[in-house]
Amino acid sequence: MSKQHINIDDIPIESLELVDVRADDAEKITRPSLSFWKDVWMRFRKNKLALSGVVLLILLLFMAIFGPMMTPYNYYENNLEAVNEAPSAEHWFGTDNLGRDLFTRVWEGARISLFIGFSAAVIDLFIGVIWGGIAGFRGGRLDEIMMRAADILWAVPYLLLVILLMVVLEPGLTTMIIAMTITGWINMARIVRGQVLQLKNQEFVLASQTLGAKTNRIMNKHLIPNTMGPILITMTLTIPNAIFTEAFLSYLGLGVPAPLASWGTMASEGLPAMRYFPWRLFFPATFISLTIFAFNVIGDGLRDALDPKLRK
């Protein structure tokens, strides 16, 4: 060992090269920094199916807005000289038993069905976040009471309650949305509560509290933004559920009143005519299915993209 020992002073100074090392280089981040949502988007983008869901949804929204303007017809006017016509250059999707243009009605129906879906999701979000947020953040006795109340309401069978309400209350869009949200918010409340419970004991909340932040600020700035992922997933899965329920209620004769057209009412009107005028069922049924499909794959894609376990 000692034989091979080289004295540092023996090395000629010319053979050494000066390397430009700076102290802060060690801290340098070589990969571009990504915010959480950028990261989510990167993973979401790789999911072809979810992406096709987004494209499909954009197309559907576009047609819901502009579709009814593309034809000279409107959704309520009868034309008894053009009853049950097959799709043609004049009526792109054909006409129904009152001679109403199905293309116009399908996109009017898209407006109604999507409106029901989005309103139900937004109302669920609103009530659910407040209820779940308070229960989770306060904890203790209040949490126990609030969640027990939610549990009891949760046990009430959803569709039965909706049917009951629709039978007794005046039929219409508002009634339908109320009926759907009366127990629909509980799912959201449970998810938000679970997240808040998990987050509220973490150090960044403690730090914020130490800095003197009020409950409101902690809620709005720290807790709720961090639960956005699960909230978003729940919302994307609430919307198809609401559209589904609407179709179901319409089939039972509890849908939006005539002459309003929702996809559900159109499909249930088209059902008995399936043998002779299949297009009357085909178009609304296809678009209900496509919409539910789009939301489902987007929801699945979001769930995968937001799951930290799948992170690379």
């Binding site: 179709a247 399936m274 043998r275 209900i288 299915s289 539910i292």
Partner: peptide, 18 residues
């Protein structure tokens, strides 16, 4: 599976029946 979830049951039933 995705089709089964996306297509409402009354439509599936009518298609089967038809």
């Amino acid at each position: 599976a995705v089709l089964g979830i996306s297509v409402p049951s009354f439509i599936i039933a009518s298609v089967f029946q038809y």
